[in-house]
Nucleic acid binder design. Structure first.
Lengths: 171, 171
DNA sequence: TATTTTGAAAACTGTTACATATTTCAAAAA
DNA sequence: TTTTTGAAATATGTAACAGTTTTCAAAATA
């Protein structure tokens, strides 16, 4: 009459769901539910990151060379609401690894420190420069000997737009 | 005695939460809860892209300088399932804009063309090189005069791991 | 009259609870 | 030996709940 019955190991095993893991309910705004489900189910953009010091077979997800997984958005954008992109022109910052046409990730929420690479407009001219400050004197310095540094005076109409956090160079 | 009381428009208005919208519980794997909450709260990784040729006030979303909006994942990763990341070591590809420590986006689904920058292992040694093919002869060429090109022979144990599509340089 | 304090009302939020739904495996049947 | 079956155990979507937060007019105060 009875089949199966109480016994060790009976029933659906733990972690047999699609995630192989426990779940917990989280409140999501209704308009974003679909987007979030796609995000979670596909884990689309969390891609493997491999270490490059390799001598033998490489790279396979089973390897020790796997450093983890990475999402470019999360890795490169700290605060989405304060971040924008600019395309760089010219080679005045070649020494900082910024090439003509590169995409710059600019964060407006972090304050420029001495030595930061910044987007600044001076007297209506926009540029990417290294921000140096000494003795109260602010200088915007290109990273290419063919260009001249700019020293900011009080009557200059200067404004910092943000700090460049990453450079994306397409091949 | 009683204050407030039942009346039209009493109480907290609808949509007064941080999302300005109704929420609903969705089951999320515990290990991804944090990632999902960040994803939902930050809302958008589709960030504004500005043109850099600018003379006056810049940049504001209302400006004409806005080229559009960009999602780094979508922009840099054509096929998530065939993409991985590698961290570059050394300066052998400095001429291609690849610096020590840069993050390389590698696509395994596109075939290397003549001139592509590729990740290749030759006799167990992994490297980033430019792939050149002429008269059936394959060469892996560094972009730094201090390094020697590698010509592939038939008895070399060589394998192409993928084509480098982008370089991410952090400042 | 003008300003401040108060508290009921209504929505928000994280979590628990629950009613299916699925999955598994050994016993029963073929 | 193979197929069928059903109790057991977990998964899943959502309602419900208890506690929190916010709002606004009435009450109290100046």
């Amino acid at each position: 009459m009875s089949r199966g019955g109480k016994r060790e190991g009976a029933g659906r095993p733990k972690g047999a769901g699609p995630y192989g893991e426990e779940t917990k309910p989280v409140r999501i705004p209704v308009s974003q539910v679909d987007r979030v489900l796609r995000f979670v189910r596909n884990r689309e953009y969390a891609l493997p990151l491999f270490a490059c010091r390799v001598s033998a077979g490489f790279p396979s997800p089973a390897d020790d060379y796997l450093e983890g997984s990475l999402d470019l958005n999360e890795h490169l954008v700290r605060e989405p609401a304060a971040t924008f992109f600019v395309r760089a022109r010219g080679d005045s910052m070649i020494g900082a690894g910024i090439h003509d046409g590169d995409l710059l990730v600019v964060d407006r929420s972090t304050k420029a420190k001495n030595g930061s690479v910044v987007i600044a407009s001076v007297n209506g001219e926009l540029s990417v420069k290294r921000y140096l400050c000494s003795n109260g004197q602010v200088r915007l310095v290109p990273e290419n000997p063919a260009y001249q540094p700019i020293s900011l005076n009080e009557d200059d109409d200067a404004r910092l737009w943000g700090v460049v956090t990453s450079v994306v160079h397409r091949l």
